[in-house]
């Protein structure tokens, strides 16, 4: 079997984020490059969402074992130091999955102050924007806590990050 970038990407679809199990590493925009080198050795470069993300090593290991199992190749996973993660790397389909999971997706930022875009984050349960930020920190580093005045839910939000 010839190993191609397409096949690697296909295998990566199976590697889910341990903290948000509905999103895979491609949905999150964590993969920056894949390369097939001599003797079908695969090199995958990835970036963590937040620099102190405690799940990085686990994700790295999951990427390696999944791609090795799917393609029977030897796989190296490196942290890409040239790139850094920002929330605009997450595509519309991924944001939809996140919302259906009950977490408000990150707004697209265009350099504006976070405090303003965080003020009226749409509630993932009732879509109301009559909400407020309760705390910029939540159960994981990438989440904030909001309250919906409309339906009374406390909800989590995947924070925008530049």
């Amino acid at each position: 079997m010839t190993i191609t970038a397409e096949k690697i990407y296909k295998a990566l679809e199976q590697v889910m984020d341990p903290e948000i199990p509905v999103l895979n590493v491609l949905d999150l925009g964590m993969i920056t490059s894949v390369k097939v080198g001599d003797g079908d050795a695969v090199l995958i470069k990835m970036i963590p969402t937040f620099s102190a993300c405690p799940a990085v090593e686990l994700i790295r290991q999951n990427i390696r074992t999944t791609v090795e199992k799917e393609l029977g190749a030897s796989v190296t996973v490196e942290i890409d130091k040239e790139a850094h993660w920002h929330s605009n790397r997450m595509g519309p389909a991924a944001k939809e999955k996140l919302k259906n999971f009950g977490i408000a997706p990150p707004q697209v930022y265009n350099g504006e102050a976070y405090s303003e875009i965080l003020m009226h984050t749409a509630c993932p349960h009732c879509n109301s924007k009559n909400t407020y930020l309760r705390s910029p920190f939540g159960s994981t580093l990438c989440r904030a806590i909001h309250y919906c005045r409309e339906c009374g839910h406390v909800f989590e939000h995947f924070k925008p990050l530049e």
């Binding site: 102190a52 920190f137 580093l141």
Partner: peptide, 20 residues
């Protein structure tokens, strides 16, 4: 509770930044 979480999260960030 939110403040407990906030300071714990900021602790994690700071130690991650030190590590970097």
């Amino acid at each position: 509770m939110e403040e407990d979480i906030a300071f714990s999260s900021m602790a994690q960030d700071k130690i991650g930044h030190a590590w970097a």
